[in-house]
Amino acid sequence: MTGRTVSILLVEDNAIDQEAIKRAFQRHRIGNPVHVAADGIEALARLRGSDGQPKLPRPYLVLLDLNMPRMNGVELLRELRADPELHDSIVFVLTTSKRDEDRIASYDLNVAGYVVKSDVGAGFIRLIELLDHYWRIVEFP
């Protein structure tokens, strides 16, 4: 994909994991802007530009944890898919959960991929590689 840089919206409540993802991007010298939301409600505000939050410009990609307070990952996904403006968002689920129910629910809501944190290696290296290839090749909506 040519042209504009993809922004990343990381939706994750654990501060350590937030830092881990950011460190991973830095280590691999990926300069794409990474924005953080601590739960689904904050994420929606960021994507819509509501509640005093600046609206996240396109193109963007969402890295979504499933277990969060106030509004969890699956609930956020439903909100996104129901919203006419946000329904085509590219979402990768990035979670500790290996549960079938979570995976099935996510794919039922058309995620681009379901990634388990413990599978992506130290420093999230394989996730970085995946995303780096993804946005070079894939055309974003």
Binding site: N14, I16, D17, E19, A20, T96, S97
Partner: peptide, 17 residues
Amino acid sequence: SHDLKAPLQDVRNLADW
């Protein structure tokens, strides 16, 4: 197994960093 291990994972990350 799941929720008790989450903070452990965090501690490991922090030690590494």
